[in-house]
Design a protein around this nucleic acid. Structure first.
Length: 352
DNA sequence: AAAACGTGGGG
DNA sequence: TCCCCAAGTTT
C-alpha cells in the first residue's frame, strides 16, 4: 500500500471528524494517562462523566498520589475493574517519588509503571509526547485486520505482536498522535465490528478486505466460554441507627470494596439456617431475617444470584474487616453494582 | 496461554 | 433473553 497516502488520508479525516472529547482538550500527560486507564474495556460515553469528575477531584498527579484510597475508589464506583484505580494510584505514586512528578517518556520506563501495559504505554507516549510508538487496542486490531487482510485470531495473546509490528511500520512520524487516535477513531465510528460503513471510510482505497469484499469476515476472533453462577445471601444486619458492612479482601474480585455481609449458599447452608450460622460466627444474635429482594448480577466471568435479607443484630462481636455505619457514613463507602442494588431496595423501604 | 477482572449498551 | 462488545492489564 501507499504508506504516505494512507497516513495523509487517515490523519486528514481524523482532523476533520474527530469527536470533541474532554481528554482531547488537554496536553497534560497525567490527564491523558487517566483517560487511557478509564477507557480500558470501557465505552467513551460511560467514561466522560467519570473523567470530568475525576479531573476536578484530582487535577494534578500529586493530588492523586496523596489521595485516600477509599476516596479514590468512591470516585471510580460504577466504572468497574477497580484494580485499574488502585494500580493507577500506585503508578502515579511511583512517578511522584521516582520521576519528580513528570510522567516518563520512554516505553521502558512508562511500561514499568503499575497498570501500564503495552497499549497504554504507546497511547501516552504518542498522544502526550508525540513519540511514534504503537498503541494497539481492539479497534486497531480490527481496523488493520481489514486493511491489511490479517487473518490471525485476535483473541490470541501472541497475535497483538503482529499488529504492533504493522503499526511500527506504517505509523506517521510527523503526527503519531493523530495517526494512533485516527486508527482508533476509525474503528469506533466507521470500521465497526458489525456492518462497517465502508462507503464513508476515508481509507477504503487502501483496504484489502474492502477490495475483496471480506470486511464482514474480519477480524477473526474466537469467542469466550460462558460464565458460571454463584448463589449468595446478602444481609443488611441492623442495630439501632446503624447497619453492618464489611470490606472485601485486598485482592481478587471487587478488592477493597465494601459490601453488606454475604454468605455463599451451598447445599449445606440453606437460607433457613442463615440466622443460626451468623449468630454462631458473631457469637451474638442475628434474628428476624426477612428476604426483601432477589436479583442477578452478571460480571465478566461469573454471575451472582443474590437473595437480599434484612435482619437484627444484637451483642455481635464483629471481626476487624467489618464495622457499623450510619446511613450518612454508608454513602461515603465505595460499593459495587450488586451492593448498590441491595442499598437501593433498602432505601426505598426506608430501612436505611 | 488462559483466566481473572465490572459494567452498561446495543443488535 | 442472550450474546457480544469497549481506547487492556495482571497473574
Amino acid at each position: 500500500m501507499d504508506k504516505l497516502q494512507f497516513q495523509k488520508d487517515l490523519i486528514g479525516w481524523f482532523s476533520e471528524e474527530k469527536r470533541d472529547l474532554p481528554w482531547r482538550r488537554t496536553a497534560d500527560p497525567y490527564q491523558i494517562w487517566i483517560s487511557e486507564i478509564m477507557l480500558q474495556q470501557t465505552r467513551v460515553d460511560t467514561v466522560i462523566p467519570y473523567y470530568k469528575r475525576f479531573i476536578e477531584k484530582f487535577p494534578t498527579l500529586n493530588d492523586l498520589a496523596a489521595a485516600d484510597e477509599e476516596v479514590l475508589l468512591k470516585q471510580w464506583e460504577g466504572l468497574g475493574y477497580y484494580s485499574r484505580a488502585r494500580n493507577l494510584q500506585a503508578g502515579v505514586r511511583e512517578v511522584a517519588e521516582n520521576y519528580g512528578g513528570i510522567v516518563p517518556n520512554s516505553r521502558k520506563e512508562i511500561s514499568a509503571l503499575k497498570g501500564v501495559g503495552p497499549y497504554t504505554a504507546g497511547a501516552v507516549l504518542s498522544i502526550a509526547y508525540g513519540i511514534p510508538e504503537h498503541a494497539v487496542d481492539g479497534n486497531v486490531m480490527r481496523v488493520l485486520s481489514r486493511i491489511l487482510l490479517i487473518e490471525e485470531d485476535i483473541a490470541k495473546p501472541k497475535t497483538r505482536k503482529i499488529f504492533e509490528e504493522a503499526v511500527t511500520e506504517i505509523i506517521s512520524h510527523e503526527d503519531p498522535s493523530s495517526f494512533n487516535q485516527g486508527l482508533m477513531e476509525l474503528g469506533a465510528l466507521i470500521c465497526t465490528p458489525t456492518s462497517p460503513k465502508c462507503l464513508l471510510c476515508p481509507v477504503r482505497e487502501h483496504c484489502a478486505a474492502f477490495h475483496e469484499g471480506k470486511q464482514q469476515d474480519l477480524p477473526i476472533k474466537t469467542k469466550a466460554k460462558k460464565t458460571k453462577a454463584m448463589q449468595y445471601a446478602m444481609l443488611a444486619i441492623r442495630s439501632g441507627e446503624t447497619v453492618l458492612v464489611e470490606k472485601r479482601p485486598e485482592s481478587g474480585l471487587l478488592a477493597n470494596m465494601w459490601q453488606f455481609p454475604m454468605v455463599e449458599l451451598t447445599e449445606e447452608i440453606l437460607p433457613v439456617e442463615i440466622e443460626e450460622q451468623l449468630s454462631e460466627s458473631f457469637r451474638g444474635t442475628v434474628s428476624n431475617a426477612e428476604k426483601i429482594t432477589s436479583f442477578k448480577h452478571v460480571f465478566s466471568h461469573l454471575t451472582w444470584n443474590v437473595d437480599g435479607y434484612i435482619a437484627n443484630g444484637e451483642n455481635l462481636i464483629v471481626p476487624p474487616h467489618m464495622k457499623w455505619v450510619t446511613a450518612e457514613e454508608l454513602e461515603l463507602l465505595p460499593i459495587s453494582g450488586p451492593v448498590q442494588k441491595m442499598k437501593t431496595v433498602l432505601k426505598q423501604r426506608g430501612d436505611v
